[in-house]
Design a protein around this nucleic acid. Structure first.
Lengths: 221, 221
DNA sequence: AGGCGAAATTGATCAGGCTCAAATCCGGGA
DNA sequence: TCCCGGATTTGAGCCTGATCAATTTCGCCT
């Protein structure tokens, strides 16, 4: 059984999609297996994607294989919009993932004609930029413990403070998102557990319970 | 005498500004002294800025003073656009800097009315996002030597491959941009100099001559 | 030209996070 | 239910880049 998180799309983002493209533009659904590539860096962008269920990672690679994950995309999130003629990074399904597709050209068309969704597109890109800016602060200046804590708080918020947080991604993904190694991520999580700020729930390491959100927020400088 | 770089605005960006706001929106010019704050994180955005001459750094701070510089802005560059009601970072003049101001509300107005500059605004925000994404790769995964080399190549391109590159920012600024300490930046520059890839020009450490751009490009993974 | 304070370089040592390695845990299939 | 392979944790030692500390260089002023 594959992990599914947050099956219901979040309303505000759903609204964003509708405003952006209109119902008729959402041409079809598509399903990706765990680990499947959705698009590759350098490819020509054909679609914009909205996640119905599942989770996606987008990343860049250096020639020798070092990987930096820009962002995780969860149910309800949009990704894959490009203004240029190539994708700037690769997107892969972390778990089995269902997406809505819409044609990129439809969106560009809507903008050209001063469509109602233009403001939402600007907002969408701006939100991505905002996330990237705070992530640069994390990558450039935070300690490993602060990074892992920041990640937990980010996920907790995006999953709307669940009692038990089910992470779709493995430790390597988290490490490549935070600019660390998987061992360092694991050690940081163990420290937070030993200090009583979180619990590894039951018999799976991907189920976490944030016990003391206040203390976590204080660590996240 | 203060350092001035690249006094003439680059045409394509000038065009961007014009398309975005129209001549009439460029309400006035303003001058900032070396080190002066242009706007602070959390402040309400009133203007969007285009640099006539000089250089600007934008950055975020952690509570204990750790600083991450998102970007350097040079002559011709625009900065300070916000979609939200607060600035997401601080902007300071690195050297004496002259800017064009235009009212943020004018731009939002233009977008609301489907103005011709809308596409350019999307392009502007997308370019910022693109820069942020490649900077995340640098901050998360590159070595100190790779970072400094990437910085030199970026500046070289933005200054259009001058014979002698005059850097407006000091070593601490470079370090805070690259997620390093100023000592590490200095050591990396010394290594590149000792290996003959660049020269410290004459009697100033801020004047660099890139001797072997090919070799530098190879270091920048 | 001389001198002062800031900026930059260079050196010595330290430490946080990485690498290498081993043990343990977990999910899924037989 | 047992077993296997991948994921995760944990440990030991190392290395890159940080920190602390002199020097040297440079910009700018008189």
């Amino acid at each position: 059984m594959l992990v599914r998180i947050n099956t219901a799309p979040r309303m505000q983002i759903d609204g964003q999609l509708a405003a952006l493209a209109g119902e008729r533009m959402s041409c079809c659904e598509f399903r990706y297996r765990r680990g499947a590539e959705i698009f590759g860096e350098g490819e020509e962008p054909e679609y914009v994607y909205q996640i119905i269920s599942g989770a996606v990672r987008t990343y860049k690679l250096l020639p020798d294989g070092r990987r930096q994950i820009n962002a995780f995309h969860l149910a309800g999130d949009m990704f894959g919009f490009e203004n240029e003629t190539t994708h700037r990074f690769t997107a892969e399904a972390i778990v089995e993932t269902n997406v809505h597709l819409m044609r990129r050209t439809s969106i560009l068309e809507a903008v050209r004609h001063g469509g109602a969704g233009t403001k939402d597109l600007i907002k969408f890109v701006t939100q991505n930029l905002q996330h990237a800016e705070s992530h640069m602060l994390l990558l450039g200046r935070k300690t490993s413990l602060e990074r892992v804590t920041a990640f937990l708080i980010e996920m907790d918020e995006r999953l709307q403070h669940p009692d038990v947080m089910i992470l779709p991604m493995n430790r390597r993904d988290i490490a490549d998102y935070l600019g660390l190694t998987l061992e360092t991520v694991s050690r940081a999580l163990s420290i937070l557990r030993d200090e009583g700020l979180l619990r590894f729930d039951g018999n799976t390491q991907r189920r976490l319970e944030l016990v003391d959100r206040g203390a976590l927020a204080k660590i996240d400088a």
